[in-house]
Simulated assay, not measured.
Amino acid sequence: MLDTDWSDGWRGAFRIELRAEAIGLAWHGWPVLPGTFPAAEAGAQAWSGPVPVHDDWADRLGAHPNQVADWWTGQPYSLLVATGRVVDAVEVDTELGKRAARLLRATGHPAPIVATPDGRWLFLTTVAENLPEELATSGAVRWHGEGSWVPLPPTPFQHGVVHWRVKPDVWGWTLPAADAVHEVLARALEQEDRHQQLVAAASVAA
Rank of each mutant, 00 (worst) to 15 (best):
M1K: 10
L2V: 10
L2T: 15
W10A: 12
L18H: 03
A20P: 03
G24D: 09
W27S: 07
P38H: 04
A39H: 14
A42Y: 12
A42C: 05
G43S: 09
P52D: 10
H54N: 12
N66F: 11
N66D: 15
V68E: 00
V68Y: 03
V68D: 00
A69K: 08
W71G: 01
T73A: 15
G74C: 06
S78C: 08
A82S: 13
T83A: 03
V86R: 14
T94H: 13
G97L: 01
K98G: 09
A100R: 07
A100K: 06
A101C: 07
A101L: 13
R105Q: 14
P110Q: 06
L122H: 12
V127A: 12
E129G: 15
P132H: 05
E133P: 04
E134I: 10
L135M: 04
L135C: 03
A136I: 05
V161Y: 07
V170H: 07
V170N: 02
V170F: 05
G172Y: 06
L175W: 12
L175D: 03
P176I: 01
A177W: 04
D179L: 05
A180Q: 13
R187S: 13
Q191P: 04
R194V: 15
H195G: 00
A200M: 11
A201Y: 09
S203D: 14
